[in-house]
């Protein structure tokens, strides 16, 4: 599946697309706390996300990017609004349904990798392929992130970039429908960060997985199909790139 660039911009419902919709978000609101301590982390977000897209979510700290990601990933239940994944309604899902959703459909990549320190790279991936519905072999996933030679190393024996690539392999091994990445290069230097972004870009391109990437590094927007700017819990603006820049060309 090759990425296509759409000329349409400024509209979040590209009518010309033949791709299937993955997420449909309407008026999504998330409120933490009560009374005067109330925080509106999400304040009426409308969004549609499609198969195979690489979407970069840009915005300052506290703008609600991570909160949105948590709702999309089934880690949290919104306060109000609609959130549909394919045909299922995530706003009213049970705990078991959410677990099942995360297990089969979502791949997470975190800023601090969150690998299981007591398992080797291969086992960290294997842990997930063991429970997933239609996984690829852990070795294949690790090969996609160029970690074949270091498969049997424990997290403590890997560099930060390598650990993050294990995390990516872990996320893609289950062939998820959606890949959610929260500041995946936040803890890495530029060179290592680019290697990690290359791995993500490759997974998106070769597997056609909807990939949502949170960052406050505007440079990364260049590698996206679509860039969404977030502020104060709302979508501020949105644009499409004519072409996706290769991660290796990025510098920050």
């Amino acid at each position: 599946m090759q990425p296509t660039s759409s000329p349409a911009s400024g509209s979040y419902a590209p009518a010309a697309t033949s791709r299937r919709q993955v997420f449909r978000v309407r008026g999504l609101t998330k409120i933490y706390g009560e009374g005067t301590a109330q925080v509106r982390a999400l304040d009426g977000v409308d969004l549609d996300l499609y198969e195979g897209e690489l979407v970069v979510l840009l915005g300052p700290s506290g703008s609600g990017k991570t909160t949105l990601l948590n709702q999309l990933g089934g880690l949290d239940i919104p306060t109000a609004g609609e959130l549909a994944y394919r045909d299922s309604d995530l706003t009213h899902a049970t705990e078991a349904q959410l677990t099942n959703y995360r297990r089969n459909s979502v791949g997470f990549i975190f800023q601090f990798y969150n690998l299981i320190p007591s398992l080797t790279a291969r086992e960290n991936v294997g842990l997930i392929t063991e429970i997933a519905r239609d996984p690829m072999p852990p070795e294949e996933a690790l090969a996609m992130v160029n970690l074949t030679p270091r498969m049997d190393h424990f997290p403590a024996q890997l560099s930060g970039g390598e650990q993050q690539r294990v995390a990516i392999a872990r996320a893609i091994a289950k062939r998820p429908e959606v890949l959610l990445c929260d500041e995946p290069t936040g803890a890495l230097d530029v060179r290592t960060g680019i290697v990690v972004l290359e791995a993500l870009e490759r997974a998106n391109r070769e597997l056609g997985t909807l990939t949502i990437l949170i960052t406050h590094n505007a440079v990364m927007a260049e590698m996206a199909d679509r860039v969404i700017h977030f502020s104060d819990g709302r979508v501020l603006s949105e644009h499409r790139n004519a072409t996706r820049a290769a991660p290796s060309t990025l510098r920050w």
Partner: peptide, 16 residues
Amino acid sequence: SRELATLRVVGMTQRE
């Protein structure tokens, strides 16, 4: 807790 929560996030059930 962090490790266990990660396992939950990546899709393991409470039982697992």
